[in-house]
Every structure is written in structure tokens, then in C-alpha cells.
Design a protein around this nucleic acid. Sequence first.
RNA 1: GCCGCUUUAGCUCAGCUGGUAGAGCAACUGAUUUGUAAUCAGUAGGUCGUUGGUUCGAUUCCGACAAGCGGCUCCA
Length: 644
Amino acid sequence: MIQIKFPDGAVRSYEAGVSALEVAKSISEGLARKVLAAEVNGEVWDATRPINEDSALKLLTWDDKGGQSTFWHSSAHLMAEAIESQFPGVKFWVGPAIENGFYYDVDLGGRTISEEDLKALEKKMNELAKQANSYERKAIPKAEAIAYFEEKGDEYKLDLLQNLTDGEITFYTQGAFTDLCRGPHIPNTGFIKAIKLTNISGAYWKGDEKNKMLTRIYGVTFPSQKQLDEYLAMVEEAKKRDHRKLGKELGIYTTNDDIGQGLIMWMPNGTVIIEELEKLAKETENEAGYKRVVTPHIAKENLYLTSGHLPYYADSMFPPMEMDGEKYYLKAMNCPHHHKIFDAEPKSYRDMPYRIAEYGTCYRYEQSGELFGLMRVRCLHMNDAHIYCTKEQFAEEFKAVNDMYLKYFKIFGIEKYVMRLSLHDPEKLGQKYINEPELWLETESMVREVLIEANIPFVEVKGEGAFYGPKIDVQIWSAIGREFTLATNQVDFAQPRRFKLSFTNMNNEPEVPLIIHRAPLGTHERFIGFLIEHYAGKFPTWIAPLQVKVLPISDKFMDYGKNVLKQLRKAGIRAELDERNEKIGKKIRDTELMKVPYMLVIGEKEASEGKVAIRRQGKGDMGVEDVQAFIGRVQQEITDRSSD
RNA sequence: GCCGCUUUAGCUCAGCUGGUAGAGCAACUGAUUUGUAAUCAGUAGGUCGUUGGUUCGAUUCCGACAAGCGGCUCCA
């Protein structure tokens, strides 16, 4: 007999060799029907695998992350079985569970697969799922596994086997499909009740662009059709928030073939948002002791040799323009220009920290396939600033920058984000990262310490640093789930030396400053892209392109409408008057769809009393109010940058 | 940049197997003068992304290019 301990602390005795599924059955049949996998002593196992010694056991169902990922991984195997039956001779690479579903990378051997094929595959998968075939686990000696895949001529699985240790190799078989797999899997395919193959794409083998491109097929499955329907409805909802769709509908930005890929033109509505953001940034930075500067969009080659852009970053820059025997580059970053401003006048410790800010325009040659609405563009406007400080001042300055982030996040109600400490990859020193191994480690630990001290939760990621130093990136997700760096805060130990920057310290000696690069509002492009999705286009009044729309019941009240409009505009409120010959219902509908925060309905009653009937976007009729009282209230809301 | 898909009126989309195009909304004109999410009627609007080819004839078939979309790679 063995002792099984449950998460609630209860302990029960079972025969050795009992499976998690049998344990579940001993508790209740209903539970057994829901068990997908089990966590045995902290490790996720097949629910059917025998447990031979005293163990801590947690039964995993759909409600557990481990249960879900097991379900999706098993679904990937089911899909592979269907693919193999429809396209005999294909070879498989890997098929993991991902955040929303799973994929499998397949070498179709020169064949292509279409949307039609996906439907057929779904149908086949449904058939196979109904057979409720169990996933059979089998331990295989390495030699035998190699022989099996050599026989099949499967170079992909042979490649995977290379890195596996003899004795730890397992095969899983369900129905006619056998795969090299660590597992675990759900008990049988019958659990998979709802299947949707979502898309097909290419993916480089092992993620290396030098390798062959495999076909990646994505899918998502659920234990019930209802859950799939809900998931698909949620995806549809997310699409409605997509900044590319709303950006067009709300007249925020446009692009044009004759202008070029990834080059955003801000329309009047978008420009209002830009101006409000800049106003906020200027106020905030002024308060925090920053000075503003303005620099040109181009610079000569030598600047970028000094900065290290050309050795480390040339691929992401537009090619140079030649003039009078000189090469000029469009700037990809503002820092080198700012360094030259720092260096323009001699500095002493009394000038430190020296903080300069600019909404700088940068141009980056992003590869065409990487462009994405407002989120990845080729011309961007960065909420940039550089802080030149002494080593002693570093922690305090870094902390102050961080506080500024949090201040902004509060204003915008940004709650879902992850702070990421982005470090260098020692293997890429001298290629992607400036070759100063010790300085990297020193700076990275400096940043880490500040984060820990300030009690800021963060994750560490290797190989995401800037070429000149570590960063703290703020990661966000677009409506359709793509991850982006919204804001960034970086430490630079390399450029101060490369630019031979110095200040005179208290001992009258030259000293090299540290530089903090920071962009809490990221770029206008990405930030506004994010805001559109964050607010689903319903901007708070202070930032809304149009704040108030005056809607007369009929032409008879147009004069009064003009009068109200004049008062609103005089008060600095962005307002318009609907002069169309339409019924009030139509005017309201159109204004609601444009997501204007306030509508002022005016008719006989309001005109005679000098009042307005207020309607709040999305909330409906709010009652009648005196025009000036309304104006005062909205002005206050704008000044407070209130979010509702 | 790579793999796959897409491109028809300002927007959203129809248009079977090749015989030069349609709807709704928007726009404009007129009627209506309206009380909290679509009043009615009429008018105008397209070299069917661009460019080669096949064909008596191409929006439709094939190629190239461009842009967009889904991923991969990349990402300051």
C-alpha cells in the first residue's frame, strides 16, 4: 500500500501502481470524467500512469493550467494523426501547447496546404476524437528509437533524439499515430469535443532563418462546443478593439502606398491625441527637472560610427544619403544627438543630473513582414530623454524614472503589464552587444538591485538588452494578443565612453557619467495604438479628439446650437455642431459610433432656458444642465485628466 | 527578409465554370422640422491594386511587382 497526499492535506492509502484516474474514480465518477492529467510530486503526469510510491497528488482538470496545456498538447497529437492520414509521408517537428491552443510544425514535403484542407483536417480530427483512443505511453531504449525513425527517414525526430538521454525516452501512441514525446497526455482522445484549426503559417526549423521553413498549423480545442463558441466570440470581440480597425473608423491615422510602408500619417483626430500626450509629457518632465531640446532627423556617418549604431545596428537603419562626399543617415535613435548637446558645454558635478528630453522623430528600417499597424512602423516619434548622472545619483534617478512610469500608468489605468529586465546574451558579445563583458554584468546587477530595492516585480530575459546596455522594458499585449514593448528604460555604460563624455567632479577631476535612456510613453505610434485598444476607442474626455458634440433636435434650434458651440470652444473644449438635416436618433447614433464622450441635445426647452440636455457616450441621458455649469464640469474633468 | 493568404465604389462586401460590374452604408440633391442608437425619395461615384502574358475577348486563368493580413525571423 502507498500513501497519497492531496492538496487539502488529506492522506489516503491505495494499492501501489494505482493511477491518478483510479484515485479520482475512488472519490467520484464525476471527478474521474474531468481528470485530464495529474501533478505527482510537482511533476505533470499522465492520469493513467501507475504511481508506485508515497506521493503528493493533485488531479488536474480543465480549470488547471497544467490540465489545459496537457489537453492542447494531446490535441496537437490528434491533429498530427489527422495530418498523417491525409498527407501520408509528412514529417513532424514539434507540436507544443501555447497560450491559446497548440500548433504542430510539419514538413509537408513540398506540398502546400490551404484553408479547405483545414476543414477536412478538422473533420478527420473529430472522427478520430470520437474513437476515444487512449494515449499509450511506452518507454523506449534510445537505440530502438533511433532505429524507428531511421526506418521512417525522419531527420527531424532523429535530431530531437540527439539531445535526449537513453532511459528517458518515451513514445506515445494514439490510434494510428506514434510520436516521440515526453508527455504527458490526457487519458484518451474522446475528451476533445470541439476543434477549430485557426491558421497556417511558415516557421523556420528551430527558429533559425537560415533553416528550412516548415508549415505550422495552429489550432484550438475544448472539452465542449460551448467553450469553443465562447472562445471564438471572444476573439471576435478582440478584433473590434484592433487599433487598425478603430484607427481607420475614428479617423486617427492613415497610410498610403505613395508614402510608403510603415509610414504613418496622423489625421486631425490622431493629431489631437499626439498633442495631448506631448502636453502631458512636457508638464511631467518639467516637474521632474528635465529640459527640452530639439535635434535634426539626420546626421553624418561619423556620429554613428562613434555611437556604435553602424557596427551593431546598421541593418535596422535606412541606407545613407550621399552629399558632398559625406554620408548622411536618418537617425534611428536620438541619443547620439543628445550626447552632442551634453558635450556642447563643459559640465561639472553641479550640473548633474543633466536631463534632456525631446519627442524625437526616428526612422528604422524594419523588415517589411514585421510592420504592424501603429505598433511596428518605420517612422516613429519617441518620448525620449537622456539623464546624465554620476554613479552615486544613479539609483535615485533610476527610481525617479520608474515613478514617472507608474504615474503615467495610473493616469491611463494601465494595469496589465509586465516589467522585463532585458539582459545581454554572453554568446553574442561583439556581434549584437558591445564587447564589455564585465561592464555588462556590473550594470545589470545595478539595475537588478534598484528594482529589488524599489520592490518592483519583474522578470529577467536574456538576449533582449539594447546593444549598449541592459533595459527595463514594459511589456503589453495588443487586442489580438501580440506582445510589445510599450515603454523602455535603459542604462548605458558604453556610449559615455565612446563619446568621451565627462564632467568635472568635486575633486576637480574628469569623470565619465552614466546615462539613463528612458521613454515611458514609448513612441506616439505604439502608445496610441495601445491606447486605442486599451480604451476600445472610447477615450477619456481629456484626450478624446472630439469632446462634445452639439445635437439640435431640428433646424429651428441651430442658432442656439451655434451659440452653445461658441461657448464651448471659447472655454477650450473641442466641440462640433451637427448641422445635418437628420432626426435626433440618427444624430445620436452617429455620434455614439464615433465614441464622442459628450452629446448635448438641444430643443425647445433647452433653448428657452439656456440649458443643455447631456448624454454621455455609452451611458445615455444624464439630464438637463445649465450650459456654463456643464462647461465648468467638463473643464475640470479635462484638467484632472480623469478617466471617466 | 521567409512561408501562406488577400486586394472589386470613401467603408463593408456580392459577382458559378472567362463575354468590360452590383448591394447596403457614407457623399450629394430634394422632401420632411423631427426629443435620446438608422425618415423617405432621387443623383452621382469603379481603367475590378499595378504590370506583363494566354485568349477573338481577362475583374475572372498564369507570371512579376506593390500593399495588406496570419505567422516565422527580427525588434531600440
